[in-house]
């Protein structure tokens, strides 16, 4: 069962990461940003946008099957910790510089997400205790 969760959380992160990378690629392709039909046509003419949609659907289905059994705290954390994988991939794929301020900000955000995940876990434990 533990393995089921681990694979599930890893899949969730992978789909979210795929979604964001594809969004970035499709968006870059459609530059410059403008409020026009031409911009929309450029966005949807690029195959990456469909990769982003696959990422959305995959993440949604994984999330729904995880939530059936998995505790909400770790599920919440897994659904937001794609910031880590996305930062690593942006540095590697798009040669984006990783600055000191970015790392400080990322550490604070990740610590916050972990706190919120534990907060969800506590709440679930206490409602379970009440209903039991």
């Amino acid at each position: 069962m533990k393995r089921f969760y681990l694979i599930g959380f890893a899949m969730l992160m992978a789909f979210d990461t795929l979604n964001l990378i594809c969004f970035k690629l499709a968006g870059n392709h459609a530059l410059p940003v403008e409020m026009s039909v031409e911009w929309l046509a450029r966005v949807f003419s690029h195959p990456w946008i469909y990769g982003a949609i696959v990422g959305y659907i995959g993440a949604f289905l994984t999330w729904m099957s995880l939530l059936k059994h998995a505790p909400i705290g770790p599920a919440f954390a897994a659904s937001h910790l794609e910031v880590i994988s996305v930062m690593a991939l942006s540095w590697w794929m798009f040669s984006e510089p990783v600055t000191v301020t970015q790392i400080i900000g990322a550490v604070a955000i990740i610590a916050g997400i972990v706190c919120l995940a534990f907060a969800e876990g506590d709440e679930e434990a206490s409602t379970d205790a009440v209903t039991a």
Partner: peptide, 24 residues
Amino acid sequence: FLVWIAFLSLVPLSEGVLLGSINI
């Protein structure tokens, strides 16, 4: 969906995904 694509195309992805955390 459209706003997010436009936003991500204008900023580095690593920065965009960090700034997007404010939604939480």
